[in-house]
Design a protein around this nucleic acid. Sequence first.
DNA 1: TCCTGATGGGTAC
DNA 2: TACCCCTCAGGAT
Length: 291
Amino acid sequence: MPEGHVIHRLARLLNDAFAGEPVSVSSPQGTFAQQAAQLDGHVLERAEAWGKHLFIHFAPGNGGASGTVGGAGAVLGPERIVHIHLGLIGTFRLQPADVPVTGQIRLLVSDGTTVAHLHGPQWCRLITEEERDAAVAKLGADPLRPTDPDNLATLDDVHARVARSKRSLGSLLMDQKLYAGVGNIYRAEVLFLLGISPDRAGVGASREDKEQIWELLTDLMAQGEASGRIDTVRPEHTPEAMGREPRKDDHGGEVYVYRRAGQPCLVCGTPIATAVVEGRNLFWCPTCQAE
DNA sequence: TCCTGATGGGTAC
DNA sequence: TACCCCTCAGGAT
């Protein structure tokens, strides 16, 4: 279950494992079988992430004399990019090829050493370069591309749009046309860390607010990309420092407000509040984030 | 055994 | 705004 850091991490792991190699591609669960057959045995050129979107590029070629994977039986057409969006419940994991994979496997990529297996994605489509470009063009600024000049140009536009918006920051932060890759955990944690009420309107946010939000997203998401989990608590609020039980949660990390409704704020003790914003449960501290 | 929720987003009304 | 899809784990029954 992904925010952008998971997708960028996946792209990196896929490149480490497969880039430049011929791979076998299949769809055991069946829904992507026809497309997988077109890719089977061809070279996985590279994987790339934009926000929460993952693109896996294939190039003509096969194992040739090695003959260990696939047959590259099909000629690669203009549709040679797999566009994956994990949605709310999708997973895409890598593991040693000798460990059995169970469950509903939409996409299986293997080089005989490592297996990558995709479950429950919102999308898994075979698309053209033009379609990839169109998908990327719809996205806003991605905090995990902090030095990309195009991305930073987009950021200027994002800040201008936020500055004109009457929508709340709690809503704006979930908009992929603005902040690409940010999801429900980062929106809640960033607003908490900056002491900003999720109700504050874009038009009511200072230039400093917007810059701090971007800087913090950049830091936190880079950490998340490296570690594979979301941790936002400062050293003085870790379970060890506070003598409290570590969080037992599927996302694993230590956070201030996300899914802590009714529990005392780690900083001030006020019960954490929750409300549905943009169709998702938002969490905040009414005291630390008073306005 | 059933029911619900979960780091998401598209489409239809 | 409501509803739909994808999968799976954990809690309620």
